[in-house]
Simulated scan of single mutants.
Amino acid sequence: MSDARARAEHIFRARFGDAPLLRARAPGRVNLIGEHTDYNEGFVLPIAIDRAVWVAARLRTDREVHLVAADFGEEAVFSLDGLRPGALRGWAAYPAGVAWALEGAGYRLVGMDAVVAGDVPIGSGLSSSAALEVAFAVAWAALSDHEIPPLDLARLCQRAENEFVGVRCGIMDQMAARFGRRGHALWIDCRSLAIEWVPVPPEMVVLVADSGVRRALAASAYNERRAQCEEAVRRLRSRDPGLRALRDLTSAALEAARAELPEVIYRRARHVVTENQRVREAVDALRRGDLPAFGALLNASHDSLRDDYEVSSPELDTLVEAARTVPGVYGARLTGAGFGGSILTAVHRDAVAEAAEAMTRAYAARFGRAPTLFRVEPDEGAQVEQIANP
């Protein structure tokens, strides 16, 4: 049994005096490649990981919601009636936002007693927020006897984060949490929301290194980068009135218009255009089992994020550079929005220990502390289990 699952159920019994009726799980994610492309209607290639958020829950007879965050030692109480953006702050805003979005879409919910616990590192770029949202969404759907189509559920969780919490995230994180499949990456077209599962060669391991640098996404330069992409599209429409998003722009068209764009806007657009092409090539490389080619694309992605999108940091760069020195490492790059958080290393399973040692040694030498390292495997998306004989 997962430690987080056991912790959620144990605290539920202690706090509410009975066993929960169900347990819901939603995984974190690592985005293998395709960074800052989702809100530009481009392509991404995440994996759902074997670290997750667990919700132990039972229904109430009223419309109140009583929540316990096991990892914070905090509680929150709110009513499903009259929920509005800005009404709650902190971790409780995420489940409240999910309830608000589901009810706004016509799914009337029951009150809930619940305990939430997880082992997805918070603020590390592995999307603990989407895991939290999706876990509560599937729990509420089960308790309230609703069958919510998976894509609709992902969209409603995104709406909760965008409009209730106030973070302008794309759709990738929620889709990875809902649609993940063990042993596979998930290719997503963020315009059509078409998906394909792409097998991950079994000799490749994903080693995540958490820098320990926490970022507040809502307060970071994430929203600025997104606005810069939108500005690029507005400026380029003078050449192509039908241009909808940077996803539609070719490298040749961008270069032809370079003189018309401020340098920083040009570099932001160049990252998105080239990153979309890297995602396409990465899918082909995985399908061929060509891990050196896949790793070279990861390296190019990080370099673009560092130089053109400017979302890396000295901590992330140090980890990436150290990983790349190790034989058996295919490639390394930051994952998530950047500005702190984690990197991922695609590495042959026989080289995991050497890669971990190299990153730890280099990081400690420069920053006086060790990164947190953990190996992840592609895992299943969100699941709900009724607890028989509670």
Rank of each mutant, 00 (worst) to 15 (best):
residue 120 V to A: 10
residue 112 M to N: 01
residue 30 V to K: 07
residue 172 M to L: 13
residue 169 C to G: 01
residue 98 V to A: 01
residue 161 E to Y: 03
residue 328 G to V: 11
residue 344 L to P: 01
residue 219 A to M: 10
residue 62 D to A: 04
residue 75 E to N: 09
residue 347 V to R: 02
residue 294 F to N: 13
residue 19 A to R: 14
residue 299 N to W: 03
residue 295 G to T: 04
residue 251 S to G: 15
residue 86 G to P: 02
residue 46 P to C: 08
residue 103 E to R: 08
residue 188 I to L: 13
residue 89 R to Y: 05
residue 234 R to D: 11
residue 150 P to T: 06
residue 261 L to S: 11
residue 119 D to P: 00
residue 294 F to C: 06
residue 183 G to Q: 10
residue 251 S to Y: 09
residue 23 R to V: 15
residue 197 W to P: 00
residue 363 Y to F: 15
residue 113 D to H: 14
residue 283 V to N: 02
residue 77 V to N: 13
residue 16 F to W: 15
residue 378 P to L: 04
residue 322 A to N: 06
residue 24 A to P: 09
residue 68 V to D: 04
residue 274 T to W: 05
residue 315 E to R: 02
residue 136 F to C: 02
residue 244 R to P: 00
residue 60 R to T: 11
residue 259 A to Q: 11
residue 247 R to I: 07
residue 343 I to L: 12
residue 287 R to K: 14
residue 141 A to S: 12
residue 25 R to Q: 13
residue 114 A to C: 07
residue 383 Q to F: 08
residue 142 A to F: 12
residue 68 V to G: 04
residue 17 G to N: 09
residue 123 G to I: 11
residue 90 G to H: 02
residue 166 G to D: 06
residue 270 R to V: 02
residue 18 D to V: 14
residue 48 A to M: 09
residue 221 A to L: 15
residue 356 A to I: 03
residue 337 A to P: 07
residue 196 E to A: 15
residue 277 Q to M: 11
residue 9 E to T: 06
residue 56 A to E: 07
residue 382 A to E: 07
residue 354 E to V: 13
residue 266 Y to F: 15
residue 118 G to Y: 00
residue 154 A to W: 10
residue 209 A to G: 15
residue 152 D to E: 15
residue 330 Y to M: 12
residue 129 S to T: 08
residue 290 D to W: 01
residue 101 A to N: 07
residue 272 V to D: 08
residue 388 A to F: 03
residue 160 A to F: 02
residue 352 V to I: 12
residue 183 G to I: 06
residue 249 L to M: 15
residue 85 P to M: 08
residue 349 R to S: 13
residue 335 T to Q: 01
residue 13 R to A: 11
residue 62 D to Q: 04
residue 216 A to H: 13
residue 387 I to V: 14
residue 366 R to Q: 07
residue 56 A to T: 03
residue 83 L to S: 00
residue 280 R to Q: 13
residue 18 D to G: 09
residue 315 E to P: 05
residue 242 G to P: 02
residue 224 E to W: 07
residue 167 V to A: 14
residue 384 V to H: 14
residue 200 V to C: 10
residue 240 D to P: 00
residue 169 C to S: 12
residue 229 C to L: 08
residue 196 E to W: 07
residue 351 A to T: 12
residue 11 I to D: 13
residue 47 I to T: 05
residue 137 A to D: 06
residue 344 L to Q: 14
residue 200 V to I: 15
residue 60 R to N: 02
residue 114 A to M: 11
residue 106 G to P: 05
residue 245 A to P: 05
residue 356 A to P: 12
residue 273 V to W: 04
residue 311 V to S: 09
residue 384 V to F: 08
residue 284 D to N: 00
residue 23 R to P: 00
residue 260 E to M: 13
residue 145 D to S: 14
residue 258 R to Y: 08
residue 240 D to R: 15
residue 93 A to L: 09
residue 104 G to I: 00
residue 112 M to T: 11
residue 21 L to V: 08
residue 367 F to T: 04
residue 23 R to N: 09
residue 257 A to H: 12
residue 133 E to A: 03
residue 77 V to I: 12
residue 370 A to K: 14
